[in-house]
């Protein structure tokens, strides 16, 4: 029963992802392409296995350029499966069902408020390699904390993910919640990302504000 509901929820929410972005930010007319500040709501990132079983399942891929989820094998920057985040850069880490990397994306985790991470300049980006994701997995290693008492995954505050996209542009991401509608009271509604991001569409530009 529960699993059925979850699957339904995942399916419905996946349908709506494309419609849920909103836009803001001041119009700095000096630049040809303004920096985009958006929010993605309830991006479903299902996985199979876990809890001792081998983890598998398609990653949910995301493209900063369109601001949309994608099924493209090439035009994606980052991808989500459960708590794992892959980048389109480097090699497969060795888990099942991973997408092939054909871009030059990289990731790093900066510390601060979302606004305080103003530039990608000076940051060192890593890529996915054998047995290791660029965004470290595991509780308190990367972006989340898992509380074994409550079984809740929470995004660690102050962890701002900064990405180099597949084509050398920069974006920063703050994950707000891992639960559908940001409501962690039902652990079964997990694997739904809501995040804010800022994307600078100008190649080589590191400004993130």
């Amino acid at each position: 029963m529960k699993t059925m509901n979850t699957i339904k929820a995942i399916a419905t929410s996946a349908l709506f992802i494309g419609f849920t972005s909103c836009s803001s930010d001041d119009d700095d007319t000096q630049q040809p392409d303004p920096v985009q500040s958006e929010q993605v709501v309830n991006l479903a990132a299902p996985q199979t296995g876990g809890q001792g079983q081998p983890i598998g399942g398609e990653f949910a891929k995301f493209n900063f350029e369109t601001g949309m989820q994608t099924t493209s094998d090439t035009d994606w920057d980052i991808a989500f499966r459960g708590t794992t985040i892959a980048v389109n850069g480097g090699t497969v880490t060795g888990t099942a069902d991973e997408p092939t990397r054909n871009g030059n994306a990289g990731a790093t985790i900066a510390s601060g408020t979302f606004a305080s991470v103003a530039t990608a300049d000076g940051l060192t980006f890593t890529q996915d390699v054998d047995a290791s994701f660029a965004v470290p997995t595991g509780s308190d290693n990367g972006w989340y904390n898992y509380n074994p008492q409550t079984n809740i995954i929470s995004a660690i505050p102050g962890k701002i993910l900064v990405f180099r996209t597949r084509d050398g542009k920069y974006a920063k991401v703050e994950i707000l919640s891992y639960y559908l509608d940001q409501d962690s009271s039902n652990p079964n509604s997990g694997r739904h990302y809501t995040f804010n991001y800022v994307y600078n569409p100008n190649e080589g530009e590191t400004s993130l504000q």
């Binding site: 510390s111 408020t113 102050g158 707000l176 809501t194």
Partner: peptide
């Protein structure tokens, strides 16, 4: 030093 963060409960965004 402003190095401790928390999520603002309304927006879920990080504040120091």
């Amino acid at each position: 030093n402003g190095e401790v963060f928390v999520r603002e409960p309304q927006t879920n965004q990080t504040v120091a």
